[in-house]
Design a protein around this nucleic acid. Structure first.
Lengths: 138, 138
DNA sequence: ACTATCTATAGACAAATTGTCAATAGTTAA
DNA sequence: TTAACTATTGACAATTTGTCTATAGATAGT
């Protein structure tokens, strides 16, 4: 997974990189991933946190508060619903459930991702055309 | 291109969407695209602005100040260099040129994009597996 | 001469997103 | 009772974006 840079590159950061700060992921992924996981089965934050590993998140690094925050934010958008789960031992869990709107939104997000893939593809092939192979000069 | 939402979806925005604001692009694309264009040939902001169309940007909507700002930011990171071009008529142009560091950075960015594509692919296939086809219940 | 339009760049500020840290709490095992 | 794991929340700083405004030379039209 991309995050975690700070390589060679003049330290004269303008915008876009306070010194020492990790470069952020190039793509906003958290919410669609959470929604996708919830589309499959109800779950709670702590559990989702670990499930995110399957989408390439480094759970060691990902701050749990990001997951919880995104869940709450999605709830305020009515993409998910939650309630306290009393039937479990340990500290109380807030169980999340995707809503119909959430499913619909997920679908739109999937379309976005498909479009995004095409856009990325365009850049990648352009790069390889201009860099590689035969011609060096126009 | 994705931006421009504001569809059906409870207006109770939590975080992530002030009412009325356009949803932003799901992916940060501007800088790599600019760098890629400059990897091919020197150019100036106004020209780059229109060239971005080939990567799917809607030039009608894209605010020029974003392009100029990103160029300046990349310059402060030494990814590009610039100087005023006197040999052109009309208002002065700042001609940009990619630096060796810029080329190296672009290469890393390309790797990022390739990884990102894989990540997106993972989500997309997961989505289609869980949604489509045969099994509905686990 | 005046005005609109196109080329060109820059600055400021508000809004949104992300990163980081600390606080709180129940449970279990040493 | 202390450490470690499960679980969630809140606050705040840093960063990134979006938007609007200002400035200015050149050109074409009236």
């Amino acid at each position: 997974m991309p995050p975690g840079y700070g390589r060679g590159m003049g330290r004269g950061a303008g915008r876009g990189m306070g010194q020492g700060r990790r470069r952020r992921r190039i793509i906003n992924f958290l919410q669609p991933c959470l929604l996708l996981l919830l589309a499959r089965e109800n779950s709670h934050g702590y559990n989702l946190l670990t499930d995110l590993e399957s989408f390439g998140f480094d759970v060691e690094i990902l701050d749990p508060s990001l997951v919880y925050r995104n869940l709450r934010d999605m709830e305020s958008l009515s993409l998910v619903q939650s309630e306290w789960d009393d039937e479990s031992q340990g500290p109380q869990r807030r169980m999340y459930q995707i809503t119909p709107q959430g499913r619909q939104f997920l679908q739109e997000w999937i379309h976005d991702l498909e479009r995004t893939q095409l856009d990325i593809q365009k850049v990648l092939t352009t790069y390889h055309n201009w860099t590689n192979s035969s011609e060096k000069e126009k």
